[in-house]
Design a protein around this nucleic acid. Structure first.
Ligand code: ZN
Ligand code: ZN
Ligand code: ZN
Ligand code: ZN
Lengths: 507, 507
DNA sequence: AAAAAAGGTCACTAGGTCAA
DNA sequence: TTGACCTAGTGACCTTTTTT
């Protein structure tokens, strides 16, 4: 029994869509839930969306989730006792680490728009395009109690990738991607995010109109945006559009049959989702409450925003933001040099933005109101600023975000390093970082990111041996990473690291 | 045709204006019927509407009703005698099994607003938009006695979906939808129901005003709301607005050319009507008077309302509301776990609400005054409450409502199980329940809902063999149902069950 | 050529206005 | 206060453009 199954808790909503003839006036249900959380509101929107699709196969999503789960490492934890299994399976949603936060949202009027559903959308999309012949899944009629066996069935079906175009059409018909803004059925990828037709057109109109008129002021600035309330407040709807990554210049054209062929940002939601899941899982294995890290992460990213908005010089920022690295460390030197020569502007990597959003949506307790404002603030800044580019100091900060994750991972697992054995988290973090900072040519793959600290433990050694492409890298960043590594990857306990992070005065 | 009321309507001779081609003393009859029931007043409103539309084809409504009736299961009852057939054509609304209760309304001063007319409005709207070329229905001038043939004709016409825009305009021209509140010509779908301009604005104003002032008290609480009296009592008018499903968040935007593309509630009135019809029909076949169940159902739902309004803890509610299940049964345990971890709010399923409404509107004898108040109370609660979300105990109750229906069905048919052969009621209830509680993965279709109690009788085994799609389901709910099943589906007679239900102290 | 997204169209409604 | 009428949005469906 895989513990990641909770992720499919989103999907209860999907199943509603197949029962259009037997469901009744769903609007009343809508109006009954004013302060619905995002998760639940997605739940509702699915009912709306799919009620008129008769030939939907409810197994589709399940299989998607199954494949998603199959990609995750299996847990040896004993959550599925024979007598506990009963409760566990019904309470998949609440008992697993990933979904327990969703319920915490429910008492808040959270306006965070990027939700688990968005990630699932990505995952569904990816999985669907990868293997599109599962829609006729009559072989799944008998649902095996153990998810492993069903995974095997699924992978068996994957072995025959023929009749792809036909099935793709079918897949398009009963598409389960929902709008990231309002939760209604998505009609495709519009202006940088999966949205419905209504939100697509709304964004286009508002983008044109906003140039001259601006918003009609919203008082609360915190409106819930779902299919029912989307027409009420245009400001909050627009801000949510921004928050989910929409932008007039973020369009994607042409056909995108494969993930590799896409000319747009790569679909990294899956890896990000499992990345976060793995982090939590590691916390569980290490007997560390993940919620302890909440304030830490939130503060970290809030300072990121302040840095993004600040107009100080590089030196000031470096002085303020180095993790107590000495000022003439390679990192500051690098930044100084880059800054002196040219502007050295770096575009904000999409995946960093997504990472940011996903983090705040999934990991942080919704009771913390700051998160909601933070993510909107962050996205909004990036969209509204004139030069939507990161300066060097900002880039350095992004760099440190990745490092932060690695350090976090390291510290969490240093008590029992065995959990890192073949753990995909480190590999994924590394790949992510490498893709983000590929413009900096590393000396070699192994010397820079992956085997960061040869002097310390060997936890990261076995992670990314599969990736073999090599891009020439400058030795300066390699030694830079080495130095940061030696500083941060030292044998700090978690409390040490925590105080190390908190004691530092960012502002 | 202008949907707006002519400004000259102010003068007292309003009705004369439309009835001038008909009996001139209809207005006196109108005034003589102060306590006219809703059905008749809607009935009249049709006459209102059509009188000043000279180019109306009277067959339009008949065809709509025909298709609606034809979708209902045929009754072997002798409601359509040959000499009655004439009346049948003109009184389609009232003579069908669904509408036979509407006559019972006529002697009461019922203020229940959700009526057949509303459902018919939906159907008319749907049918009109789906196939917009029947308005020139010269082929329907000869009204076929068998409804099936006319349906075939109707569906034949559907095969040619061209000239859509032209026909749509024509449809718009002679629009027959009337206001669900006052009965005047509707100007569109406003705030969740087809209303006229006056009632639309009244609802908006009252919704704003009610926040600070509240109602101006009505003494009788039972005012008739029609085009003449709608301005008299604001409280009763507002309550009728609520009852017909209006709400500030139930707006529908955009164009709605086809039902398939609409983002609004699908037209499921038909299936619901037939569902209820089937229930009654089963009662007839089982030689059981359906009116026996009235008090049972009413009490059951009245307790639902009380539960919705209560703010007790989960444990209290569970203790109070389990159908004498032991406290540590899987159901209560489930609820307890859900409640302990997080708020775990569950939305009220729409179909349950609508099922509730339709039940009370159609099935229950109108002589029972409680029903009218109950449905208004229910709708009103859902509109007025601050947190319009269901908690876990409420969700559990909804679950049990579905079980209640199944149990009801079971008990009704256990005397002669042959009536369940290919009966659509069980299938529909099952699908309804499955769609509602799809987040709980059942082990398989057959083990969970349909063949609930393998240990008991085999009445439900043959119901949904036609449905072959399978969704993976968790064994917990299957066994949960099994347990409830074993408790409720034991060999109880109907009287036993009745006393079992009534003896239990809900409050 | 096919697929996917941008852009256009027009039916449709919420909210405002003003006369009565 | 009521209600006919108007206008600014809104969105489902369609066409055009851009990509593979
Ligand atoms: Zn949307
Ligand atoms: Zn707002
Ligand atoms: Zn009206
Ligand atoms: Zn009154």
């Amino acid at each position: 029994m895989n513990c990641y199954e909770p992720t499919k808790r989103i999907e209860p909503s999907y199943n509603h869509q197949y029962y259009q003839f037997y469901e009744s006036d769903q609007r009343q249900q809508y109006q009954a839930n004013q302060d619905l959380n995002n998760q639940q509101q997605q739940h509702q929107s699915y009912e709306y969306t799919n009620t008129y699709e008769l030939n939907l196969n409810p197994n589709d999503l399940q299989i998607d989730v199954e494949s998603f789960v199959a990609n995750l490492p299996s847990l040896e934890e004993s959550d599925t006792h024979s007598n506990n299994q009963y409760v566990y399976q019904t309470e998949l949603v609440t008992l697993t680490p990933d979904t327990q936060y969703q319920f915490q949202y429910q008492n808040t009027d959270s306006s965070i728009p990027i939700s688990k559903v968005e990630i699932l959308n990505q995952i569904i999309h990816t999985t669907t395009s990868n293997s599109s012949n599962y829609s006729t899944s009559s072989s799944y009629s008998s649902f095996s109690s153990t998810s492993n066996s069903s995974i095997e069935q699924y992978q068996d079906l994957n072995q025959s990738p023929k009749k792809k175009s036909l099935k793709t059409k079918i897949k398009r018909k009963d598409d389960k991607i929902c709008c990231n803004v309002c939760g209604f059925k998505s009609s495709g990828f519009h202006y940088g995010s999966y949205t419905c037709e209504a939100c697509k057109l709304f964004f286009r109109r508002t983008e044109k109109q906003i140039r001259k008129t601006g918003f009609n002021e919203c008082k609360t600035k915190n409106c819930q945006i779902n299919i029912e309330t989307r027409a009420n407040c245009s400001e909050c709807r627009y801000k949510k559009c921004i928050a989910v990554g929409m932008g007039m210049s973020r369009s994607r054209f042409g056909r995108h049959t494969t993930q590799a062929g896409s000319n747009y940002a790569p679909n990294i939601s899956e890896s990000l989702c499992s990345l976060i899941t793995n982090l939590k899982q590691t916390c569980l294995k290490s007997k560390i409450d993940f919620s302890i890290l909440n304030n830490l992460i939130v503060d970290f990213y809030r300072k990121t925003i302040k840095l993004l908005q600040s107009s100080n010089s590089i030196e000031e920022e470096i002085t303020n933001l180095e993790f107590s690295l000495q000022v003439d460390s390679p990192l500051s030197e690098l930044s100084y040099l880059i800054n002196q020569n040219k502007p050295s502007l770096v575009k904000l990597p999409d995946c960093v933005l997504v990472l940011f959003c996903v983090l705040f949506d999934i990991n942080i307790s919704s009771a913390d109101k700051r998160i909601q404002n933070t993510i909107i603030e962050f996205n909004y800044y990036l969209q509204m600023t004139e030069e939507k580019i990161l300066k060097t100091n900002q880039f350095v900060l992004i760099l440190k975000i990745g490092l932060f994750f690695k350090v976090l991972r390291h510290l969490l697992t240093q008590n029992n390093p065995s959990v890192l054995k073949d753990d995909p988290f480190d590999k994924r973090i590394t790949d992510l970082m490498r893709s983000e900072f590929a413009m900096f040519k590393f000396e070699s793959d192994d010397s820079s990111m992956t085997s960061l600290s040869p002097s310390t433990s060997s936890t990261c050694s076995s992670t990314n041996s599969s990736q073999s492409e090599s891009n020439g890298q400058s030795p300066i960043l390699a030694s830079l990473f080495l130095e940061i590594n030696q500083l941060l990857y030292r044998n700090m306990t978690f409390d040490e690291f925590k105080s190390f992070m908190l004691d530092f005065e960012f502002d």
